[in-house]
């Protein structure tokens, strides 16, 4: 299915100034019957009209070959990749792409203005962070000032379909509330093994403050992993203090963390039960469920 398209044109500031200049000179040429001034003015007027036609013709054959948005989290920009065709000839050097999302997330509709498709017609844009759920693209505007920037022709493509999901933003609300996460608890349920140097990016809750007070060095307690017992089940109902969106966000944080630690984990959401498993497909499935794409 090809997206619906509509074409429009507007004259640019440069175009208006160009036309005004021609009219002024035309008045002068007319008054003095100055043939050479006439010749030049009319040639430039011809250029003006040719630019109008040429802009339209350059954009007419342009089609969106493919458009693909990456699934991502709600607090991150969404990469959208695509390609335009034809790429072998007539696409003028510059196409400017903007996208208007129909989402109510308050995100600005403009993305990456002035972007030119690559030599192969491909382009990559970054949508501002989008709300959780199935990504809905509004429209994509391909516009060109070809050939001389006097006019701006644009094609607006509506009804763009995408399979991308926006997962909840992985935020640890419990840490903010000063509570230990089950993951932390599970990690620390093993026997104390040793102190290791704390590195930037690690959880602050892992720091051995006593040692810090003594030595001034930040050290982290390391525990012996008790492998089978580290199976985790993240339960919606285990977070009674949080709002629904916060719950999703919290569960998402745990899922991401667990996936990173290569743990086996399951997820329980209202009406959905995802059994213990690990690996990429399981991870994606859990995220999809959290995005609301499976359960709702």
């Amino acid at each position: 299915m090809q997206a619906r398209r509509s074409m429009s044109v507007r004259i640019t500031g440069l175009g208006i100034a160009f036309l005004a200049m021609l009219l002024v000179t035309l008045a002068g040429a007319s008054n003095e019957n100055n043939s050479f001034a006439y010749l030049l003015v009319f040639t430039l007027l011809g250029l003006f009209i040719v630019a109008f036609v040429k802009g339209a013709l350059s954009l007419l054959p342009v089609r969106l070959l493919h458009l693909h948005a990456e699934s991502t989290f709600a607090d991150r920009p969404v990469p959208v990749r695509g390609a335009l065709t034809p790429r072998d000839h007539a696409i003028p050097g510059l196409l400017e792409l903007t996208s208007a999302t129909t989402s109510s997330g308050g995100a600005g509709p403009v993305m990456a203005p002035g972007m030119a498709p690559g030599a192969d017609g491909g382009f990559e844009l970054r949508l501002p962070p989008q709300p959780r759920g199935r990504l809905s693209l509004g429209s994509l505007v391909i516009s060109t000032g070809y050939p001389a920037g006097l006019f701006r022709w644009s094609i607006r493509l509506h009804g763009l379909a995408t399979a991308a999901l926006i997962y909840p933003a992985p935020i640890d609300h419990l840490v903010a509330a000063g509570r230990r996460s089950p993951l932390q608890a599970a990690a620390e349920s093993g026997d104390f093994d040793e102190l290791a140097a704390w590195r930037e990016g690690e959880s602050l809750s892992g720091i051995c403050w006593k040692s810090y007070a003594r030595s001034g060095k930040r050290m982290r307690k390391r525990f012996l992993q008790s492998s089978p017992s580290s199976d985790l089940c993240f339960d919606w109902n285990g977070l009674p203090t949080l709002s629904d969106e916060q719950k999703r966000s919290q569960l998402c944080h745990w899922v991401v963390d667990a996936h990173r630690r290569r743990a086996r984990y399951g997820l329980r959401l209202p009406g959905i039960m995802i059994e213990l498993a690990s690996g990429e497909p399981h991870y994606r499935r859990c995220l999809a469920a959290l995005a609301g794409d499976l359960g709702e």
Binding site: N33, Y38, L39, G46, I49, V50, K54, P147
Partner: peptide
């Protein structure tokens, strides 16, 4: 571009009304 603009320029050159005498 300029060559494509020429046909129009030529037509306008010959048929754009010329003033018999200057306006100012």
């Amino acid at each position: 571009l300029l060559v494509q603009a020429l046909p129009l320029a030529i037509v306008l050159f010959y048929l754009f009304p010329r003033l018999p005498e200057p306006l100012w």
